[in-house]
Measured scan of single mutants.
Amino acid sequence: SAVVMEEGSPGEVPVLVEPPGLEDVEAALGMDRRTDAYSRSSSVSSQEEKSLHAEELVGRGIPIERVVSSEGGRPSVDLSFQPSQPLSKSSSSPELQTLQDILGDPGDKADVGRLSPEVKARSQSGTLDGESAAWSASGEDSRGQPEGPLPSSSPRSPSGLRPRGYTISDSAPSRRGKRVERDALKSRATASNAEKVPGINPSFVFLQLYHSPFFGDESNKPILLPNESQSFERSVQLLDQIPSYDTHKIAVLYVGEGQSNSELAILSNEHGSYRYTEFLTGLGRLIELKDCQPDKVYLGGLDVCGEDGQFTYCWHDDIMQAVFHIATLMPTKDVDKHRCDKKRHLGNDFVSIVYNDSGEDFKLGTIKGQFNFVHVIVTPLDYECNLVSLQCRKDMEGLVDTSVAKIVSDRNLPFVARQMALHANMASQVHHSRSNPTDIYPSKWIARLRHIKRLRQRICEEAAYSNPSLPLVHPPSHSKAPAQTPAEPTPGYEVGQRKRLISSVEDFTEFV
């Protein structure tokens, strides 16, 4: 048969007729292969192709491409040299491709048809291009793949890379869960390890502090508590009631339409708007009261037996805890006409967050109470924005700035309102402590230090009264110190430094 060459192609190359033996071998191979691939376009007849790359030819070592076609129900084999250009295909004639002069020997084609199974398996396991790669995943090629499931790999992101949580363990979102698992493993320790309690022994800490320079003076030496005195035992138990972190309780009120001037209507609300609910979820963490331990979680007086509701929101960081007394989460009882059960919590909070959804101005004093010092007013606006402002009593104007209003988005509203309420509550605590000038409020841990110092002074006084020969370590507060001759004046800087060093040991009130 003659071949018409394309323009620009090399000279004529004689194409030899395939021997009958080659056709029989390739026909047997075509019957084993699956003929249901995917359909081509209507211009080209339905056909199945599979590209198999052999590394070497037997005796020649030339890479070839073998295409199996099922045109007219008769499979045909096409061998081509890759750099050459194939002729145009037609549905009426068999596929013809040019070969190099080196394939002119018909014996070479017979060798190609009689490829060993080793070469076929190696060509099938190679990388296939384009559409033949999808075909190689079918059941027909499963014989050339190794048996057994593939090893499982770690989760992959859409980009093909490992997620960040699997790369950096410290930033993994499941870090707290692993800590819980470690605690569970520790709890399952053997009885021999049960006595080993991690941490620092208080006796060891005391020993280090006792021999430090801070205890060089007799006034700073630790003293032993009497065991037989019940009054001192009660004082030590009272110390446990003062937490070592700051605590805040903040009221949250929802004002519906037409309720801006009605205290009873505001306290009777059992739910609010959708934006109000989203605002609550951002204030803190939802907790169930019956599962809380009052000595570990500050509840601000809420009952854990269901008297004040089942849930509330709280927030904490390293040095403070805040609980929100939310009116809509507290039960509304029919027998309580004046809502006294709610007001006994909300009316005693220094700061209230008022979500004013009424469309009218909310005035300070609508919720009557002796300790309502500051109101954080949240007014929802259009386009997911809110107006946040402050209202306070006249005696609080020096501590709280009420002249600045803020426009905040719904997303950042819980954070801004919480921070403003916490700052206002700190100012309210300082303002409330002014009624007792001898006990200015600095912080909870300073209050613990003052309680310890008062307890020490009482013990020293009782020891001096029981044994008059012992001198008083600290003179009583009601006694007057003996007159001392004025010492020589020293520079102001040295006096300030000495006073600062003494105050650092005794108390921190002056620095606050």
Rank of each mutant, 00 (worst) to 15 (best):
I353K: 00
I440F: 13
L299S: 15
E228K: 07
P222M: 06
H474D: 15
L387G: 02
E510K: 08
P486F: 09
Q370V: 14
C385M: 05
I353W: 00
S433N: 07
V255A: 03
P437K: 06
L422S: 01
T277P: 01
L346H: 05
L283G: 01
S469Q: 15
G398Y: 11
A265H: 04
P476R: 09
A463I: 12
A447M: 09
D246G: 06
Q237Y: 10
K406F: 15
F324C: 02
P294R: 11
W315V: 03
Q457V: 05
G282T: 02
I266H: 03
Q391F: 03
K343P: 05
V416K: 00
P437L: 06
L501C: 10
N467T: 13
E307I: 09
H271L: 08
S231V: 14
N227D: 14
H338Q: 13
Q457E: 15
P486L: 11
S268Q: 12
D303Y: 03
L381E: 03
V323N: 07
C340S: 14
K337W: 10
P482F: 09
V354P: 00
S479G: 13
S358D: 03
K480I: 11
C292E: 08
Q484C: 14
H345D: 06
V255T: 01
A481K: 14
T312L: 10
D401F: 03
V430Q: 09
L381P: 00
Q370F: 14
C385K: 03
G347F: 15
V404C: 13
D361A: 07
V430W: 15
V495F: 13
Q484D: 12
I502F: 13
V505E: 14
Q241P: 06
T438R: 09
N269M: 02
T490P: 13
F508H: 14
S409N: 04
D341L: 15
Q230T: 11
V252F: 00
V304A: 10
D357Y: 00
F415V: 04
G306I: 05
R454T: 14
V495A: 14
M420S: 05
V351D: 00
P294D: 13
D240N: 07
W445S: 11
S235E: 15
A463M: 14
P226R: 09
E270T: 10
Y441P: 11
Q484H: 11
L381W: 03
I250P: 01
N436L: 06
S231H: 11
L289V: 10
I407Y: 08
G301R: 07
A251P: 02
I440W: 07
L280I: 10
M320E: 15
A427Y: 10
I502R: 11
I266G: 03
P489I: 09
T379N: 06
T312Y: 06
V416Q: 03
S466R: 07
N372I: 08
S260E: 08
A427G: 03
A405D: 13
D334N: 12
S443C: 09
D382W: 01
